[in-house]
Design a protein around this nucleic acid. Structure first.
Lengths: 257, 257
DNA sequence: GAGGTCACATTGTCCGGACAATCACGTCCG
DNA sequence: CGGACGTGATTGTCCGGACAATGTGACCTC
């Protein structure tokens, strides 16, 4: 039978870590970042053992709880797996990034494309029943409305319609053309917390087809999203339409144990 | 019991918790479950403070790290928010469930529908290049193939095609009609870890329309998914098609701080 | 040789304490 | 009256240790 090779354990790990106690960065965070970098660059091979926590702590001059905290954060990210009695090992699969609350802008940017934005509308309007329910305001109340066309390689990719509470944010049209909405919100001190999404599909109307360069009746990917900040306040309601021929949602998700 | 002192905050913390030290269930887990139940039933109102950790620990006869571990698990679930200098409070928004690696079967079941499954195919086949790449086997190698039609209220909702490594699982056709694939895998001792998904849309072919009861060219929602267990092995590759007129993906997602 | 048993290694849980960082709030001063 | 400042409250980080639970592998028995 196959004998478990012993060099995966390795009496001494070839990878060295170190922490800077004078830095304001928490020690566990320093360590978790170094571990993550080592995993991503392959210096810690998939499937390899990490060496037991106690020895690792001693080697770094840290306590075991601190080392555990660092490891745990990577387990939560799906990069490591712990097994009682065995050890902690690097996950085999190609974990890229779990599903994030990312804007389309970031999606395209990380995909190597150069997203462009054309702001079609930047005004205020009266909330419809749907928008009012999503944002938690009265029907007919004034809300901000932004409509944008997102392009990649000069081609339309998506039509984005966002409703926001008035006064939440200063929505400069030129800033909206430079970056994504979420970045603006974060920059304004809003800490995003969670979002409720619905992803579906439908056929393009004549108007939608015109805007996106698709024939009427072409399949479109739709997403509706309400985003909340950490006080539970709804800060955005988006109703977006993507060209199915040019875009798909790709993401990785983890099983919550 | 010492000082009850003045609860100057909101004077709203009459909820009592208790732990059973003779139980094999970890203490932090007992506490987190009770907290979660209290939040879901509304006994802990949204926005209300939780009372500081040290006092809570003293009241329960637990140490602060244990209480923190319980609270942290709920913070990770998005139910609580911690603020330094302020306290821990229940989030306002209607957090339902974060995106899970759930089967369509579970989705429909929790939606109150009674899903039915018709197994169209349960056999083995030779892996195409796409399947081979996803499952990490050689092209042309034998893999299991299952095709199912999922119905709700007697109407077709989705066509599911799954490829699996041979010998991984005993796929009884009658069991496939009773429950979802993921439940079978879990029951077989496979611990799911992560999945890579792609969600898109396209127009129905004539054959697809026939199967799902849609006209040719109707918009369909598509999902491709490769699922990995905790050893990094690909255990399933799914290629699914949903009727956009009858189904949409709904989920909640959390921002990774 | 097959199967069960036991020691060992490793992570899981829990404790008690210490100090730092941050935020809300009241106080003091201009 | 308003802004700067200090103070208290609360969570964040970190330590060192103890015992339990679990899976592996070697050893022993049959």
């Amino acid at each position: 039978m196959g004998k478990r090779d012993t060099d995966s354990k390795g009496a001494e790990s070839p990878v060295q870590f170190s922490v800077d106690r004078s830095s304001p960065v928490p020690l566990y965070f320093q360590l978790s970042q170094q571990l993550e970098a080592a995993i991503e660059t392959g210096r810690l091979a998939p499937g390899s053992l990490l060496g037991n926590e106690i020895e690792l702590a001693g080697r770094l001059g840290l306590s075991r709880p601190t080392v555990r905290q660092a490891i745990q954060s990577l387990v939560d990210k799906g990069l490591l797996v712990r097994r009682r009695g065995i050890g902690t090992q690097v996950v085999h699969s190609q974990v890229k990034r779990p599903l994030e609350l990312s804007s389309l802008y970031d999606d395209l940017e990380t995909a190597g494309q150069k997203p462009a934005t054309r702001v079609l509308l930047n005004t205020t309007t009266e909330a419809t029943a749907e928008v009012a329910a999503a944002l938690g305001v009265a029907e007919g109340a004034e809300v901000a409305l932004v409509e944008r066309l997102r392009l990649a390689h000069g081609e339309p990719v998506a039509h984005l319609r966002n409703h926001l509470p008035v006064g939440l944010l200063d929505l400069g049209t030129e800033r909206l053309e430079e970056t994504g909405l979420y970045r603006l919100m974060r920059a304004a001190g809003i800490t995003l917390h969670s979002a409720r999404q619905s992803v579906g599909a439908r056929a393009a109307t004549a108007e939608e087809g015109e805007r996106l360069g698709e024939p009427e009746g072409a399949p479109l990917l739709t997403m509706q999203r309400t985003t909340f900040d950490d006080t539970g306040r709804a800060v955005e309601f988006g109703s977006h339409v993507y060209r199915a021929s040019r875009y798909a949602f790709e993401f990785q998700l983890l099983v919550r144990p």
